[in-house]
């Protein structure tokens, strides 16, 4: 093939590259960095981006019957509508031989399904799949839809304040916390359902200690003393397990919240420092982060579910 155009690129591509370069340079010059390097350069005001003021608490947009509706809540409703409407539209005419959309949908959902089965086993994976999959889809679409234009830029007037109408749901700490609680509740539910008393025993393991006390009273002092010691240690360990259950909620919450908020602030700052095209790279990065965080959240939930429903044989001697 004979090379046409310049520098090995065809003309349309070359024009695109040139436009991108011009935009990048202009953006750089217009941003605070460019302004401080090249002082005296007077560019029109509209090129620059005003300094962002990220705030951690989500703003309340309006009240329904005294119930405050935060902008992150609206965003998560948007995510829900997209997810449900999308899957309804695709699964409405589900067929044995899938079309393109159905195949893509099946690829995602089927991938999650086989992921659950590979971790938790055939039968358990089937039971955990809806929870894990919902967490994954909710987190990922919260993150991805938050990258759409309009999030953080559409503003509304409320009680004399200018507020953002939409805010990526994951960047409001209530969303990760709610998900963490849901994950915790499901772990508890499945654990109790599958192991019943044994599940609780893992977290309040008093059995060995009482057994040792019994031995003490019946006169086997030597065995009783040793048993009391190990029994105490095992009780302590089980309390640690209990503690770690609750710490999981915190770690779940702050992992997701921290990653998503940091990503959001990173995007804001990058766009502020170097306006226009430079931020696109970070949008790509945020896509990846959204996927990875969703996978971590769902995957950890899956692992905890699997652990909670697996009897620790040999424990408690």
């Amino acid at each position: 093939m004979a090379k046409k155009g310049c520098l090995g690129c065809s003309f349309p591509v070359l024009i695109g590259v040139v436009i991108l370069l011009v935009l990048a340079v202009t953006g750089f010059l217009a941003g605070p960095i460019g302004q401080s390097v090249f002082k005296g350069l007077n560019l029109p005001d509209w090129i620059g981006v005003p300094r962002p003021h990220p705030e951690l608490p989500a703003e309340t947009v309006f009240h329904i019957l005294g119930f405050p509706v935060a902008n992150s809540l609206i965003a998560s409703w948007f995510t829900m509508i997209v997810l449900v409407a999308g899957s309804w539209a695709i699964m409405r005419r589900v067929s044995m031989v899938p079309g393109r959309l159905q195949a893509a949908f099946e690829y995602v959902v089927g991938g999650l399904y086989s992921f659950c089965q590979s971790v938790a086993g055939e039968e358990k994976g089937r039971r955990f799949f809806p929870v894990v999959s919902t967490i994954f889809l909710f987190v990922m679409f919260n993150a991805w839809l938050g990258l759409l234009p309009g999030f953080g830029s559409i503003t509304a007037q409320s009680h004399g304040h200018v507020i953002h109408l939409l805010r990526p749901a994951n960047t409001d700490i209530n969303t990760p916390l709610a998900l963490a609680l849901v994950s915790f509740v499901f772990v508890l539910y499945f654990g109790l359902k599958d192991l019943r008393f044994k599940f609780l025993q893992q977290y309040f393991n008093l059995g060995p200690m009482f057994k040792a006390m019994g031995q003490l009273f019946t006169g086997k002092v030597k065995a009783g003393m040793g048993g009391l010691f190990t029994g105490f240690i095992m009780f302590f360990v089980s309390i640690l397990e209990l503690l770690s259950m609750f710490i999981r909620i915190v770690s779940f919450t702050f992992r997701l919240f921290g990653n998503m908020t940091a990503g959001e602030i990173l995007l804001l700052m990058v766009v502020f420092l170097v306006p226009w095209v430079f931020g696109v790279v970070f949008y790509g990065l945020e896509l990846l982060v959204g996927f990875v965080q969703a996978l971590i959240f769902a995957g950890l939930t899956l692992v905890f579910l699997t652990l909670a429903t697996t009897a620790h044989s040999g424990e408690g001697h």
């Binding site: 608490p57 509706v69 809540l73 829900m80 449900v84 919902t134 209530n174 609680l181 849901v182």
Partner: peptide
């Protein structure tokens, strides 16, 4: 300062429940 608010938290839990059921 982190922005934890009980109403939003409850709303998000309910949201998840609804989403779970619908999905």
């Amino acid at each position: 300062e982190l922005g934890v608010s009980l109403p939003t938290l409850i709303a998000q839990v309910i949201n998840f429940g609804i989403l779970f059921l619908l999905l």
